[in-house]
Simulated assay, not measured.
Amino acid sequence: MSTYHPIQRVLWNLTSAGTASTTISASANSGPITCEGSTDLGLMVNVTGTPTGTTPTLDVQIDIQDPDGNWYPSIAKITQLTTSAGRGTAYLGLHMPNVASSSAALVLPHWCRVTWTLGGTNPVYPQTSIALIGR
């Protein structure tokens, strides 16, 4: 049985321990992350370096998995980042208003994942951090 934690905690972070950011040059995902014990999730993306490539784009989203193992993509996603440094947030859970694609109000399943997709020709996003926070 899980315990509700009203204080935030990091459920997943793209960067290694002791590293503030990393370079993204390929689309990927976090793999399954347990959301057990969380009623709300916050996805935070920050790019401090200047993206390179021809018309680079970065999309980051939260996917959820049903009990049968089916993934439901893009339940909440940040606004697409393009040719300049920037940041984005998305929220998901019981206490979120479903007002845009950046938030979704629903009961969280046991598993979720963070997915990032790069677009353009030879896109590179340096100095990027992605974190999934739960409470």
Rank of each mutant, 00 (worst) to 15 (best):
G69F: 13
A26R: 06
Q61R: 15
L14E: 02
L92W: 11
H110F: 13
E36A: 13
I78M: 14
Q127H: 08
V107S: 06
L11G: 05
M96P: 00
V45R: 07
T48G: 02
N98P: 00
L132R: 02
P32M: 07
A90M: 13
I78Q: 08
I7Q: 15
S129M: 06
L43P: 04
S102K: 08
T22M: 09
Q65S: 11
K77R: 12
Y125G: 01
G69K: 10
W116R: 01
V124Q: 07
S21L: 00
V60L: 03
T15Y: 01
S84N: 14
N122G: 06
S21F: 05
I33H: 07
A100K: 08
V60R: 01
T50Y: 01
A104Y: 13
Y4P: 03
A85L: 02
S102R: 11
M44Q: 10
P109W: 12
T54V: 14
L43F: 12
I24M: 04
P109A: 11
T121F: 00
V10W: 00
S27I: 05
L11M: 10
H5A: 13
P32I: 03
G93L: 07
A17N: 11
A76E: 14
N29I: 01
D66P: 13
G37T: 06
P73Y: 12
A105I: 02
A76L: 10
Y72G: 05
Y4G: 02
T79I: 12
S21Y: 08
S2P: 05
L92R: 09
T15C: 13
G120N: 00
T89H: 14
P73H: 09
L81E: 03
K77S: 09
A17Q: 12
P126E: 05
S30A: 11
G53P: 04
A100R: 12
S2I: 07
L94S: 04
V10H: 00
I78K: 10
S129H: 06
V114H: 04
D66Y: 14
L108N: 03
T82M: 02
W116V: 01
A17Y: 14
T89S: 14
Y4C: 03
C112D: 04
P97E: 07
S2D: 09
G49D: 08
G134A: 05
L11H: 06
R113M: 07
D40R: 03
Y91W: 15
L41M: 02
I33F: 09
N13W: 05
L11R: 09
N98V: 04
I75A: 09
S103Q: 12
Q80L: 09
T89P: 00
D66V: 11
T48V: 08
T82Y: 02
G31A: 08
